[in-house]
Design a protein around this nucleic acid. Structure first.
Lengths: 113, 113
DNA sequence: CAGCGTTATGCCTTATATGATATAACTCCT
DNA sequence: AGGAGTTATATCATATAAGGCATAACGCTG
């Protein structure tokens, strides 16, 4: 048996941002396209777009700067808000994962507790 | 925006035990009956029973000592394994909730990070 | 001006988790 | 013996979320 923990940001009670969406944004940043990011993660464009929209609506911020048409058909890049969101999420989850492991050992490895 | 965290125990990749089930077991312990516990938590007996079974199967342990028929129709009490599970879960989640709050302030209240 | 590769989005299907319904079995009590 | 109140479990219904399908718009490029 082991312990798991899912961390997410929320606003007004709905899940707004978690690991899956962090990965999606990271891929968009790297590839310059939501479509390409979706493909890389093995999901449809529709699904990826839906997740982005859901987060934008929940948090009330804009995540992607997009262009349609033109060279290469268009593309998407991250807004500064999106970058900040990613950075804080990473920092928080990294720290919590470390603490989780430590506490787990504390409580489950001791002979008496 | 705020951070939430769901903590659960798992084995072989499936959710085995989390807050809802902890509450259910606690109610069984207090009331001496799964049926009564289910009613108190506003769920059907069927639903409560399903959760218990799922956890027992996932962890491979027995949670309830039950009797059917007899005085009052029967009843259920917690096994020692169930008590230990509850105790460890409570200890772990209490500790983690404390740490979560502390880290949240660390990362989100600072001017620079 | 047609084609290509994007973003954009409404509609409808489908997958999944959840719970309701129904039925059986058990044992003490009257 | 019958009733009360519980556990036990299979089957069926349903609510909800996730995503597929279809279609449109956009603007460079050849």
């Amino acid at each position: 048996m082991n312990v798991k923990c899912k961390i997410w940001f929320e606003k007004n009670g709905g899940v707004a941002f978690a690991e899956g969406r962090r990965m999606l944004l990271e891929a968009v940043d790297r590839l310059g396209s939501l479509n390409a990011a979706a493909k890389e993660l093995g999901m449809s464009y529709r699904a990826a777009w839906g997740k982005i929209k859901a987060t934008e609506k929940a948090l009330g911020i804009k995540l992607l700067e997009v262009t349609t048409g033109g060279k290469g058909g268009g593309g998407a890049t991250l807004t500064p808000d999106a970058r900040e969101l990613i950075r804080k999420f990473e920092k928080y989850t990294n720290r919590m994962n470390l603490l989780m492991e430590r506490e787990f050992k504390n409580i489950f490895d001791k002979k008496k507790s």
